Lab assay of single mutants.
Amino acid sequence: RRRVRAILPYTKVPDTDEISFLKGDMFIVHNELEDGWMWVTNLRTDEQGLIVEDLVEEVGR
């Protein structure tokens, strides 16, 4: 599965499916959606939700 790492921290918008995360958090990407959004699991918190791909970088497989 594709893995990405947060290059900046992010605080979710209330009442959305987004998740908050810290710089350096690692994610497993489950689905890539329209407009640059991805459905992921945060490996640090085990939380699932939406993040925007502009805030992450690819991690070598």
Rank of each mutant, 00 (worst) to 15 (best):
G24A: 05
I19A: 00
G24L: 01
Q48T: 14
R44I: 03
N42I: 01
A6R: 01
Y10P: 04
G49T: 03
T45R: 01
D54G: 13
D46K: 15
F21V: 05
D25R: 00
S20V: 00
L50C: 13
L55R: 12
I28K: 11
V56I: 12
D35V: 05
N31H: 14
L55Q: 12
D17M: 11
V4A: 05
R61D: 15
T11L: 08
L22H: 13
A6C: 02
D35I: 05
K23F: 06
V40G: 04
V40Q: 00
R3N: 09
G36N: 09
E32M: 14
E34Y: 08
L50S: 11
E47K: 07
D17A: 12
L55K: 14
L43A: 07
D46Y: 10
N42Q: 03
V29N: 02
N31R: 15
L22G: 07
H30Y: 05
L50H: 05
I51D: 03
D54M: 07
G36Y: 01
I51T: 03
D54Q: 14
A6S: 07
L8C: 11
T45N: 13
Y10T: 00
R61P: 15
E58V: 08
V4T: 04
W39L: 11
L55A: 15
G49R: 00
L55V: 08
E57C: 08
D17R: 14
P14S: 10
I51Y: 02
I7H: 06
R3L: 10
I28Q: 12
G49W: 00
D35C: 08
E32K: 14
V13I: 13
L22I: 14
E58C: 09
R1S: 10
R44T: 06
E58A: 09
R3A: 06
V13E: 14
G60L: 07
V52H: 14
R61E: 15
V4K: 04
S20I: 02
E34S: 13
F27C: 05
L43E: 13
M26W: 10
N42W: 01
V29I: 11
D15L: 07
I51H: 02
V4W: 04
V29H: 01
E58M: 06
E57G: 04
L55C: 13
E47G: 04
R3I: 11
G36V: 01
D15Q: 07
P14K: 13
F27D: 03
L33Y: 11
F27W: 00
P9W: 03
I19C: 05
N42K: 04
E47V: 06
G24M: 04
R61W: 15
G49C: 03
L33N: 08
